[in-house]
Every structure is written in C-alpha cells, then in structure tokens.
C-alpha cells in the first residue's frame, strides 16, 4: 500500500481538509447569530424612523420602544462575542462587521435623540463616544492587546457617517413638523463631526468614500437653515 503514495503523504490533505471544514463549521454557527442581529437591527431602525414624524415632545415613547429592540440586539451581540472570541477576531470579523456597524448606528441615533436621558428631560444632540457604545453593547472597543471580539474604530466611524445621513433627513422633516430649532442643532452637530473627519488621514477605502460624502450632508442642512433664516423662522435665542 505504501507504493500508492509516493509523492504526497495523504495525511497532508486530510489535515488541511479538517482545518478548512472546522472553519466552515465556525462560520455556520456565527451565521445564525448574525442573521438574528440583522433582524434586531431592522426592528431598531423601523422604530427609530418614527422620529421623522414625531414631535420632540412625544419622542420618549419612540425611544423606549427602540430601547427594547436595542436590548435584544445587545443580547445577540453578547452571544456573538462569546462565540467569536474563541476564534481569531480578524479571521471572521468581515462576517459580522456590517451588522455590528448597523447596531452601532442604531445606538448612536437613539442616543442622539435623547435615548440615554431619563424621562422628558432627555438630552438631545449628544454623540455617544465609542466607549459609551461599547458599554451599551457590553463589548470592549478598539482592542489591541488581546484577541477577542470588540467594536472597531472603523465600525464606529462608519456608523457615525450613517447617523449624519439620517440627521440631514431629520433636519428637513423637523421643519415639516414645525420644529425650527432642531435643524440648527443638527447643523452645528454635522459641522462638528465633519470637522472631526477632516483630521483623519484616510486611505482609499469605504471610510474615505463615506467621509467624502459628509460635505454634501453639511450643505443640505445648511440649505435648510438658510431657508429658515430667509423667512425669519429661526428662533431668537439660538440666533444669539
């Protein structure tokens, strides 16, 4: 029988097949969790989209409803984190990166709308830091010293560009609802974030493209503010 295998020790390919199959099994296991997360993300964005048609004074019910779905997403992320921390992070992270980014975006929007505050005194217009999002998701952020599941800077920044896209839409819709203050807050916020992105040295990647797109959002919201000021609709106190 030894004569059958002169050049290749068949154990080589048996071993390789076993390794490749083991990776495939990990992928299958993670896939279900990622699909569950995707569902939670859809629910979060479904609920939060009501912000476009809800006056600020009534927003707390929307935020509470969103919080429920966010908690579900956090639960799934925790399970994902447990499972994924057993394998090299960057070997598989492309599988979930997109969904983790969407959850992050949901949390950022929820936080901006005042989700972190209590009751009616919710503070709006606040940008949750990457650490705050990590706390909310119960996962570490920007991990460097050990190999485990975490939220990356890129994911956070991409989620932030999504938030800006959504807020530029909210600026217009606020005006429709008769809220002339919110566009001003959004205007300032987008400018501040845009200024932040300006200091990054981005390579030719998705983050660069998204970051380049921010200037159009800045302009959109400026146009809204211009329209308001032209018609003397800007509330006095914010003018000063």
């Amino acid at each position: 029988m030894a004569a059958q295998h002169g050049m290749v020790d068949p154990a080589i390919f048996q071993d390789l097949q076993a390794r490749i199959d083991a990776d495939a099994a990990v992928r299958d296991e993670l896939k279900d969790l990622i699909q569950a997360l995707e569902k939670h993300n859809r629910n979060i964005s479904f609920v939060l989209s009501r912000a476009h048609s809800t006056p600020v004074s009534d927003l707390s019910s929307v935020l509470n409803a969103a919080q429920e779905h966010i908690e579900s997403a956090v639960g799934t992320v925790s399970t994902l984190s447990d499972k994924a921390s057993k394998v090299p992070y960057y070997k598989f992270n492309s599988m979930w990166s997109r969904q983790v980014q969407t959850t992050t975006y949901g949390i950022l929007l929820w936080g901006w709308l005042g989700g972190t505050g209590e009751g009616s005194g919710a503070k709006t217009g606040r940008l949750l830091t990457i650490e705050e999002v990590g706390d909310k998701l119960k996962i570490p952020v920007n991990l460097k010293d050990r190999d485990a599941f975490h939220l990356t800077i890129e994911e956070y920044l991409l989620a932030l560009t999504e938030l800006i896209d959504e807020l530029s839409r909210l600026a217009r819709n606020a005006v429709t609802l008769g809220d002339y203050e919110r566009p001003l807050a959004i205007n300032q916020f987008i400018k501040d974030v845009h200024a932040g992105f300006q200091v990054l040295n981005l390579k030719n990647d998705i983050l660069r493209r998204k970051s380049d797109g921010l200037k159009y959002r800045v302009k959109e919201v400026e146009d809204v503010v211009y329209d308001l000021s032209l018609r003397n609709l800007i509330p006095k106190k914010t003018m000063a």
Binding site: L127, I130, K191, D192, V193, A195, G196, F197, V199, L200
Partner: peptide, 8 residues
C-alpha cells in the same frame, strides 16, 4: 471649536 476634535 469642534467638541469632537480630541476624539478624532
């Protein structure tokens, strides 16, 4: 003047 400058 952006409050996020340090973060970025």
């Amino acid at each position: 003047s952006s409050p996020y400058m340090a973060m970025f």
